[in-house]
């Protein structure tokens, strides 16, 4: 006795109700539960689908699907970071390194002037505003994708919803731009350090808010080749 289509869909809903939101993990767990239920039916054909389902779920232990979800998140987080580093490294190789150097020079020259505080504040606000704008735009795109496909992939959610999480932490540490004094330009290391930080901040934000989302389809196909997206 095998499960029918309605029962399979019921298992998908069951995993969703137990906080498994992503299709890749849902599919694996649905097949597991289905196999277990069918195994139980071989021994006891009178067992109801509902009782068999609960019995199969209990075997996952007191934390249910949580351990599987957490491990999957770790795996996908690592994958996302790998894609991020792969992109970042490109900006330190030819030809992109020329843009990186240009950006650094722009920051260095402006931060060497006596208007350093004004420039630092302006760049900070400019980058912050662009990040907020892109964040809202990506969130909308993600909602539209989800409505279209009716499926959610863990990496897709990271690309669209968690873009900039790394740089938000980074930006929160740069709040000292509000306390820059006139003496700042007297120390060349301070100016160099600030120019490096702003260059990295710009690159990181551009990668996570623009480049990675632009390559979302390719990255999803690379991550989930088995599902042929």
């Amino acid at each position: 006795m095998t499960l029918n289509e309605a029962q399979i869909q019921d298992l998908y809903a069951f995993t969703r109700n137990h906080y498994v939101e992503h299709y890749d993990l849902q599919t694996e767990l649905v097949d597991h539960l289905a196999n277990d239920i069918e195994g139980m039916w071989k021994e006891n054909p009178k067992l109801s689908f509902e009782d068999a389902k609960q019995s199969a779920f209990k075997k996952f232990g007191i934390f249910g699907f949580m351990e599987a979800i957490e491990q999957r998140q770790k795996v996908m987080g690592k994958r996302y970071r790998n894609y991020f580093w792969r992109e970042l490294k490109q900006w330190f190789r030819l030809p992109q390194i020329l843009t990186t150097l240009g950006l650094f020079c722009l920051y260095y020259v402006t931060f060497s002037s006596s208007y350093v505080a004004v420039f630092a504040f302006s760049f900070y606000v400019l980058i912050g505003a662009w990040c907020i704008y892109k964040g809202i735009q990506l969130n909308r795109q993600f909602r539209r994708r989800k409505e279209r496909s009716k499926k959610k992939w863990m990496l897709e959610e990271m690309i669209y919803k968690q873009a900039g999480a790394i740089t938000l932490v980074f930006m929160s540490q740069l709040f000292n731009v509000f306390n820059i004094t006139d003496k700042f330009v007297e120390n060349i290391y301070h100016v160099l350090g600030l120019a490096v930080l702003f260059t990295l901040l710009t690159l990181c934000n551009y990668i996570s808010f623009q480049l990675i989302p632009d390559k979302a389809e390719d990255l999803l196909n690379e991550t989930y080749p088995e599902f042929c997206l």
Binding site: K59, F60, G61, E67, E70, Q71
Partner: peptide, 8 residues
Amino acid sequence: ITEGALYP
């Protein structure tokens, strides 16, 4: 092998 340990 419990399912809770296998998939992670």
